[in-house]
Design a binder for these strands. Structure first.
Lengths: 145, 145
DNA sequence: CCGAATCGTTGGGTCCACTAACGATTGGTG
DNA sequence: CACCAATCGTTAGTGGACCCAACGATTCGG
């Protein structure tokens, strides 16, 4: 029963990652947000929500937490006063490096029993699945715009 | 980043399964418990907790829910009055059949983009991972007993 | 100009995993 | 036998990740 296997291994993966992150008082959302900020640069919360797939209402809390620790800065956008522009600080960048280390560590722990080749195959298969399910939400012919 | 892929696909899998189960007012724990009862027969809650890896405190709620709907029976063990013996009822067996159907359906949805061969490979890889991580909790040389 | 859309925010709710504490019962050891 | 340790079931509460509905403020398009 593959979906059982998937949810279970997904669970293990999740636990490993979560534990590693917890050891530096972080959680998944923090990493996702910091990483996205570094990759794409400052952006509004809504834009970040779309890119990270973090729900906009959770984004509020996440930004609160990170801003409270000085890892990001939240500033109103002068060009559009509805928006807050979130910027990665230097401390945020340093924290991101730490989280990346942790992530790599849990990766290693997770995939320990697999050869390099097997890891690649697994990654490829999972990518296929993800691609498929990420595309699905869009219907083909919506007359929007 | 494989652990990202795993948690994400695990997520999709989880959502698909959860939604299917929800359509018959069930959730993962219900299926796990019912399936385990059918496979191993009646058992105490603690024993079921060990087999299903459902935390003993969640087991209480799960059994409450299932017993409330007549899908299992909870009876005190005459041989050990600390224990409750949980038994699968006929209605429980029927419900299990329904859940199995739902599970198969979400399975199909999940693995749609994969060929039969690929599915097998994925299953094999995930099994390897699960095996490894299920074994780990035990140390090798504990001098107990 | 006015209605529609977007943005941030608040406050909820679900599922799954887990922790801490407790009374009741049982078993083993001194 | 008495007593302590372990087990069983239960209650109550935590936390992460995901998601929904509604609101005021602002901006945009016709």
């Amino acid at each position: 029963m593959p979906s059982w296997l998937l949810t279970q291994t997904g669970n293990h993966a999740h636990r490993l990652v979560t534990d590693e992150f917890a050891s530096v008082q972080a959680r998944g959302y923090h990493y996702r947000l910091l990483a996205t900020l570094e990759e794409f640069g400052p952006a509004s919360q809504a834009a970040l929500g779309r890119r990270t797939e973090i729900h906009v209402s959770d984004m509020v809390a996440t930004v609160n937490e990170l801003a409270g620790r000085g890892l990001v800065e939240r500033a109103p956008d002068p060009a559009d006063r509805r928006r807050n522009i979130i910027t990665l600080t230097d401390a945020g960048t340093r924290q991101l490096r730490v989280l990346e280390e942790r992530l790599a560590a849990s990766q290693e722990a997770l995939l320990a029993p697999l050869s390099a080749e097997e890891r690649q195959r697994l990654t490829a298969l999972l990518s296929t699945l993800l691609d498929h399910h990420d595309r699905r939400p869009d219907a083909a012919d919506s007359p929007s715009r």
